[in-house]
Amino acid sequence: MVEEGAPAPVSKPRLVATDLDGTLVRTDGSVSERTREVLLAVEALGVPVVFVTGRPLRWTEVVFEHVGSHGLAIVSNGALVWDVARDEPRTVRPMDTATALAVSQDLRAAVPGTTFAVESLEGIDLEPGFMERATLPAGVRRAPIEQLFDRPALKLLARHEELDPEEFWSLAEEVVQGRLVVTWSSTSALLEISAPGVTKASTLAQVAAGLGVEAADVIAFGDMPNDLPMLTWAGTSYAMADAHPSVVAAADHLAPGHDDDGVAQVLAGVFDL
């Protein structure tokens, strides 16, 4: 880990990958005009900007205007690649239903009080006891977990109302034992569970390869544990100044905080904007 304000890479990156919440998006949920201008300037140089987020599609669409008309967005921690220009999925990496159901049953047995929700292309469905913090869209189903896997699941959400987020993640890792990928990015005990091998990094690698870009030519930004695979894969990585300690330790460089337009500040320097 180097200090904040580290020198720009010797060669200019050929792809920018950035997380949203806690990274590009401010605490009030906005993307500043300065950040928007910098992203558009980078795009104008022919360098694609790819949003790589744990958000579901319905929460990512609100910031698509900032990714460029031809851009791609990696959604749900890598389970979905969305073609912004065509407004359609390019890649879908769902979970195996039997495995996801077995994991949910095992996790509840090992950690009583666990409740679940399932994200799909159609939206979110929740168990009756799952306490969602955000406003839910119309038409949300509430049913036992066994009834929520009737369509391809992009992400399984597990919530606990009493445990610490990292403690819950550690317990879940012992239960899951590699059958699925378990990560987290919330200040509450909310786990985000994906198909085997599905991470921000693995899907970003596919997108980059399709664009003829190698890992060494990617600059990535993040702030939470679900960003770690992407940050360790990218040739140049920045943790936000207010990132989780594990992210700060893993990244190459430290960017100013997300409320200080840290991504924009770094990119302006890297690309001499």
Rank of each mutant, 00 (worst) to 15 (best):
V176R: 00
A109L: 12
Q177Y: 01
H160W: 02
G210R: 10
I193V: 12
D106A: 14
A241M: 07
G68K: 04
L231P: 09
T18L: 12
A134K: 13
A250T: 05
S170F: 07
V16R: 07
F168C: 05
P13S: 10
H244P: 08
I124H: 00
S120H: 06
A73D: 01
H258V: 11
T203D: 01
L156M: 01
F168P: 02
S104P: 11
L39W: 03
F221A: 05
A205M: 11
T115V: 12
E37D: 14
G235V: 08
E214I: 09
E132R: 14
P9C: 06
E127K: 02
L148V: 01
R142T: 10
H70F: 14
S69M: 13
S185H: 07
L136G: 05
D217L: 08
G262Q: 07
R151A: 11
R93G: 01
A209R: 15
P56V: 10
Q147C: 14
T203V: 02
D217P: 06
L107A: 03
V118C: 00
A249T: 11
A85Q: 12
V198H: 00
T97Y: 06
D87A: 15
E122W: 12
V176M: 02
E61F: 10
A195H: 01
G71A: 05
D87G: 13
L267D: 01
N226M: 09
V218S: 05
T135V: 15
A205V: 07
Q105N: 15
T27H: 13
T236K: 09
A216C: 08
Q206N: 04
V175R: 03
L80D: 01
I145T: 10
R141T: 10
V92I: 12
A143G: 06
S185L: 09
L154Q: 02
W82L: 04
G222H: 09
V198F: 00
V16N: 04
P196E: 00
D223V: 10
P165M: 10
G212V: 03
T53L: 06
R86D: 14
L80R: 01
A8P: 11
V218K: 03
E146D: 14
V263K: 03
V207L: 04
M1D: 10
L180K: 01
P256I: 08
L163P: 04
R151C: 04
A241Q: 13
A201N: 02
R159Q: 13
A134T: 14
A243I: 08
L157F: 06
L254G: 09
D106V: 01
E174H: 10
G113K: 03
L136N: 09
Y238T: 04
A195C: 00
G197Q: 00
L101A: 08
F51H: 10
S76Y: 00
G222N: 07
A158K: 04
D150N: 11
V52A: 13
G257H: 05
R179S: 02
G222M: 10
R34W: 11
T18S: 13
V47A: 02
G197C: 00
L57I: 03
V263A: 08
F64T: 11
E166I: 07
G269I: 08
D21I: 00
F271V: 05
S237T: 09
H253M: 12
D28H: 04
